[in-house]
């Protein structure tokens, strides 16, 4: 007979404690289960980018920068601009991160951010084509995790979206087949949607949002849901090992949707103040 589910000492007692608190509607840091940590969002903080943002979500700090350049479209999308997302978990952010090329977690983060932006159709990429099949705008989004206390997905999506929404690019003109930048006048990107992601942690039959790194070590598993607007999801990623019970799924969807509306409202407040396109 096999013994199952025996976790080592530190996370077993933490799991029991977290579950005990959740049953009482509480958490280790005093939050309620469905409550986010304080969110701060600033845009246009790096002058040498076309757009940038910094997000603090509790103890997790993310900076995102957008740069654009002219380039060739991908062969399968000759009539669309390109998005290239890169993410790095910097060693200064946590002892869990190590120097070196992006590991699987960093690659996963970049690809989840990419899916939220791309699949929500946030940017009208077909408006960024200058010469069909030859010259399009390439948007590089670089996300850096500077300080890590759990849940790097949601603040990274917020930072990337805020940086994109406030980015200013040169006006390009096509003369005799050549594309020329008129740097004196800069314009915003054609933005249509404001995707946000919500990370939900599962523990037994209970759920919580925005787990800290301590909570991440104690929960059974977690799932990231990217909402492109109040009604539609654009990306999902089950993250971490562990099981999601069928009977928790409806609550996961309901809560994540509610929280996505809340996060988007905060995002729009900040973007509204800096005069982003609506």
């Amino acid at each position: 007979m096999y013994r199952i589910g025996e976790k080592p000492y530190p996370s077993k007692i933490m799991r029991d404690k977290l579950y005990e608190l959740i049953l009482r509607g509480e958490r280790l840091d005093g939050r309620r289960p469905y409550q986010y940590r304080p969110l701060e969002l600033k845009t246009s903080i790096i002058e040498k980018t076309d757009g940038s943002a910094m997000v603090n979500l509790g103890g997790t700090k993310i900076v995102a920068g957008v740069k654009t350049a002219l380039g060739q479209p991908y062969p399968d999308t000759p009539d669309q601009g390109n998005i290239v997302v890169n993410a790095e978990l910097l060693p200064l952010a946590s002892s869990f991160f190590e120097p070196g090329p992006p590991d699987e977690r960093a690659i996963e983060l970049a690809r989840v951010v990419d899916r939220c932006v791309r699949e929500s159709k946030m940017i009208e990429l077909d408006k960024l084509v200058y010469v069909h099949g030859r010259t399009v705008l390439v948007i590089y989004i670089d996300v850096y995790v500077l300080d890590y206390d759990g849940n790097y997905f949601d603040p990274s999506v917020l930072a990337a979206v805020a940086a994109l929404a406030t980015a200013k690019i040169p006006l390009y003109e096509v003369r005799n087949g050549d594309v020329i930048a008129k740097t004196e006048s800069r314009f915003g990107l054609p933005v249509r949607k404001f995707p946000v992601s919500v990370t939900v942690g599962l523990i037994g039959d209970k759920i919580l949002v925005d787990p800290t790194s301590l909570e991440e070590s104690a929960i059974d598993t977690s799932i990231v849901l990217g909402w492109s607007d109040d009604d539609e999801m654009a990306a999902i990623q089950k993250n971490l090992q562990g099981l999601i019970r069928f009977d928790t799924i409806d609550e996961v969807i309901r809560v994540s949707r509610e929280k996505s509306v809340e996060l988007r409202t905060k995002l729009m407040e900040v973007l509204g103040r800096v005069g982003a396109p609506s």
């Binding site: 899916r115 699949e119 799932i223 990217g226 999801m233 654009a234 990306a235 999902i236 990623q237 089950k238 099981l243 999601i244 019970r245 069928f246 009977d247 799924i249």
Partner: peptide
């Protein structure tokens, strides 16, 4: 009765 992988 559980999901082990889910992406969208």
């Amino acid at each position: 009765g559980s999901i082990v992988l889910l992406q969208l």
